[in-house]
Amino acid sequence: MTINQLSIFLENKKGTMLQVFQLLKQANVQLIATTIADTVDYGILRILCDEPSRAYQVLKEGGIAVALSDVFAIELDNKVGRAADAISLFASEGISISYLYSFIIGGKGILIFRTDNADKAREIIILNNMKFVAESDLSALL
């Protein structure tokens, strides 16, 4: 019900991001989405890709501070207001979203997020008939 995201702790310094992408390129990993949260000193780079477990090993062996995070991925109609509708369901149940991002792939809107209460979030998604996206679904849309 969740998918694997690579989370990478990076120093805010010239060349550090490039190193990550070069390692993934050399390992022939296909990226699906990337986003970065940054501060003055460091950043957390988040990556969805076709083979997260293998990519994780590659980065780890390259000495990168990388974690595999379980994140929710749901598919939304590509229409105005759908994200607001979805998020309001979590907000009304008092669930905090620690980070969120979205992208469109194969004409479909994909919302990725992580919450402080995964069990409750899963329940809300099921009760409201939202559509989970599996890793294989994403790869198929590439």
Partner: peptide, 8 residues
């Protein structure tokens, strides 16, 4: 650095 650490 695990998934518990994946946010600022």
């Amino acid at each position: 650095f695990t998934q518990e650490m994946d946010n600022l």
